[in-house]
Amino acid sequence: MLSVRLNNMKFHGHIGVYPEEKKIGQDLEIDVALQTKVDVQQIHDDLTQTISYGAVYRQIQKIVSTSRVDLVETLATDIMNAVKATYAEQVTHVTVRIRKLNTPIDGIMDNVEIEVQG
């Protein structure tokens, strides 16, 4: 079995419940972990036998750049479902974590993080 992780990807997204969040946008950090069916004994240094993390990154980048959803949970679920659909033959499980760095909360914190799995 092979695990593929893309850690701490940084994007600027226009999601949020409040109109200001969608207009101005906000910085997001995203981690994605894929559990695969890939047999590492069969890869033989051939990209077609594994999952291209570059392609996964570009897919996530496109989703974040076009999304205008209200909830970060929805964005995470959209990413999870898209990756699972694209790699249905190779992936058994996907975990998506999103950290929203600039939350409209009157308080001091580094970020808010959500996680979805499926």
Rank of each mutant, 00 (worst) to 15 (best):
M1Y: 07
L2K: 12
S3R: 14
V4F: 10
V4H: 05
L6M: 09
N7A: 09
N8M: 08
N8Y: 08
K10P: 00
F11W: 08
F11I: 06
G13N: 07
H14W: 09
H14T: 01
I15E: 03
G16R: 05
V17G: 01
Y18T: 03
E20M: 00
E20K: 13
K22W: 12
K22Y: 09
K23S: 09
I24Y: 13
Q26N: 12
Q26V: 00
L28M: 10
L28A: 10
L28V: 08
E29H: 11
I30G: 04
A33C: 10
L34Q: 08
L34W: 06
T36C: 05
K37R: 15
K37E: 13
V38F: 10
V40Y: 14
Q41G: 06
Q42H: 09
Q42V: 03
D45Y: 09
L47D: 08
T48H: 09
T48S: 14
Q49C: 13
Q49P: 02
G54N: 12
A55S: 13
A55M: 12
V56M: 05
V56H: 05
Q59S: 09
Q59M: 13
I60H: 07
Q61H: 14
Q61Y: 12
K62Q: 15
K62C: 09
K62M: 13
I63E: 04
V64L: 09
S65H: 12
S65D: 15
T66V: 05
S67H: 01
V69G: 01
V69E: 10
L71S: 06
E73N: 02
T74Y: 06
L75K: 07
T77C: 03
A82F: 01
V83R: 02
T86M: 13
Y87M: 03
Y87N: 10
A88I: 05
E89W: 02
T92F: 02
H93I: 00
V94T: 11
V94F: 02
V96C: 02
R97P: 01
R97G: 03
I98Q: 04
I98S: 01
R99A: 14
K100E: 08
L101Q: 12
L101I: 11
P104R: 09
M109R: 07
M109H: 06
D110W: 00
N111Y: 15
E113W: 04
I114G: 00
E115Q: 13
E115S: 13
V116E: 11
V116S: 05
V116G: 04
Q117E: 14
